[in-house]
Write a protein that binds this DNA or RNA. Structure first.
Length: 461
RNA sequence: UGCCCGGUAGCUCAGUGGCAGAGCAGGUGACUGUUAAUCACUUGGUCGUAGGUUCGAUCCCUACCCGGGCAGCCA
């Protein structure tokens, strides 16, 4: 007999006989002559109510069907006599598959997110985390769909890299050397030429440079994979291991890049609204009351666009007392970004044309010589969700930038070659997948949108 | 890494320089087409760890550990 998932049973158009239900007990309520079971199998937020009559063989085992136990039920799907649900299953056979004793940590009542993080192996069985990870799965699918529909080629960037590219934060070293007794050079330093890859290697912080290589061959590409930062960040929006989507488009300037980013973000929101409707309604009810109106508002409105210079002007004239002073050439701080997205524009806003001195070597220098074609997409509540730029395609300017950043031409020879042979204007950006999930679900902590979060000091599961 | 808040029952929390508390969960019983069921009774504690002050510390002080928040770094 084939298993029927709860989601399929609940969407039934008519009664069904002899269906097999397998899942986990959420609650049991005993009446005199029968018991109610609520069974969840993760296929959707809601459970299926099951009636187990006391006359059934095996009913003597009903006491084992505690919260958290797994059960297997065959029965008839019929319209419910009760108020809370359309369908219910009248059992014709009932069996406990796996017991869960009274130490089962999930109660019928709500738990704090902090407690649930400590039981990361159990929390997917809760309503909230079931919903979060269904949305995560759906959006991963939608990401591929978005790019494949537009003829982008999916590129797998390496996880292990030799370039500590663009100085985007601290890197995790990858080595097989014995930490207690590493080989050394005559000068006493560790001799990495004897390491596994015969040089220093790291976990990647970004697939961008590799994506550029493929964009300069296949035109429109994207990466979607894990990236790693060894930053000692203790915030609700930083993780040591996170997933990033990085499209790279040949023959594309900054305007096209900003257009794509906006289209992409809206596409993902629209997809979740459509395909994860019940889960999003749950978030709107229990996580963030303003979630659904905010998402719909974001879908309806064009994102605002504003140059860095205009932003500095807005911030200077805001009349605020900034903790960090506002001046042209200084980095925008959290308080500034929050003000722009949440109070001034009250909507996602793309800032672009940043001072050259604030940005990495590969960004396209503008005609003014002072700014580069960088863009950051800021969203209310989270801040930066996308960072990107048009890339510097002129060989001489790129080399000059690298000299200013004191980068080795030798290490980046392959990257420089892209400008030497058939160079084209090209652009791309990185979207933090978990930050996007936070925005779509309203979940405020990045640790709660990753199945098993890695943050400084924590890798317990 | 800096600053701030917290750590008391399985969970969420109250509390006091002098006998350790509640709600929920768990257990027992009753009741019931129930649905975070309800009602009655009930089990449950190294008060984060180590020092110190004190006649006496869960409470005050110090250090450390753990969790969280904010900032920086970024996605």
């Amino acid at each position: 007999m084939q298993r029927t998932l709860v989601s399929h049973a609940l969407n039934a158009a008519s009664p069904m006989d002899g269906i097999l239900l397998q899942g986990w007990v959420r609650t049991r309520r005993d009446a005199k002559a029968f018991s109610f079971l609520e069974i969840n199998d993760g296929s959707c937020l809601k459970g299926l109510q099951v009636i187990v009559d006391a006359s059934l063989p095996g009913y003597d085992q009903i006491a084992r069907a505690t919260t958290g136990s797994s059960v297997e039920i065959v029965g008839r799907l019929v319209p419910s006599q009760g108020q809370g649900q359309k369908w219910e299953l009248v059992a014709t056979s009932f069996a406990v598959v796996g017991d869960a004793d009274s130490t089962y940590p999930l109660q019928k009542k709500g738990h704090t997110l902090e407690f649930l993080r400590e039981i990361a192996h159990i929390r997917p069985r809760s309503n909230l985390f079931g919903a979060v990870f269904r949305v995560r799965s759906r959006l991963a699918y939608a990401i591929h769909q978005f790019f494949q529909e537009r003829s982008f080629v999916y590129v797998h960037a390496p996880i292990i890299t030799a370039s500590d590219c663009e100085g985007a934060g601290e890197l995790f070293r990858v080595t097989t050397l014995d930490p207690k007794n590493p080989p050394t050079s005559p000068d006493g330093s560790v001799d990495f030429s004897q390491d596994f890859f015969a040089k220093k290697t790291y976990l990647t912080v970004s697939g961008q440079l590799e994506a550029e290589v493929f964009a300069c061959a296949l035109s429109n590409v994207y990466t979607f994979g894990p990236t790693f930062r060894a930053e000692n960040s203790h915030t609700s929006r930083h993780a040591s291991e996170f997933w990033m989507i990085e499209p790279e488009i040949a023959f594309c300037a900054l305007d096209g890049n900003m257009d794509l980013a906006e289209e992409f973000v809206k596409y993902l929101i629209r997809d979740a609204r459509k395909h994860c409707a019940a889960d999003l309604e749950f978030f709107g009810k229990f996580v963030d009351k303003d979630l659904l109106p905010r998402l719909d508002f974001v879908l309806e409105r064009p994102f605002q666009r504003c140059t860095y210079t205009e932003a500095i002007d807005i911030l200077s004239r805001s009349g605020r007392n900034w903790e960090h002073p506002v001046s042209w050439g200084a980095n925008l701080q959290s308080e500034h970004e929050r003000y722009l997205a949440e109070e001034h524009f009250k909507c996602p806003v793309t800032l672009y044309n940043y001072p050259r001195t604030l940005k990495p070597f590969y960004m396209r220098v503008n005609e003014d010589g002072k700014t580069v074609r960088a863009m950051d997409l800021l969203v209310p509540g989270i801040g930066e969700i996308i960072g990107g730029s048009q890339r510097e395609e002129r060989l001489d300017v790129l080399l000059e930038n690298m000299r200013q950043h004191q980068l080795s031409e030798k290490e980046y020879a392959w990257y420089i070659d892209l400008r030497r042979y058939g160079s084209v204007p090209h652009s791309g950006f990185g979207l933090g997948f978990e930050r996007m999930l936070m925005f779509v679900t309203g979940v405020a902590n990045i640790r709660d949108v990753i199945p098993f979060a890695r943050t400084p000091g924590t890798a317990g599961f």
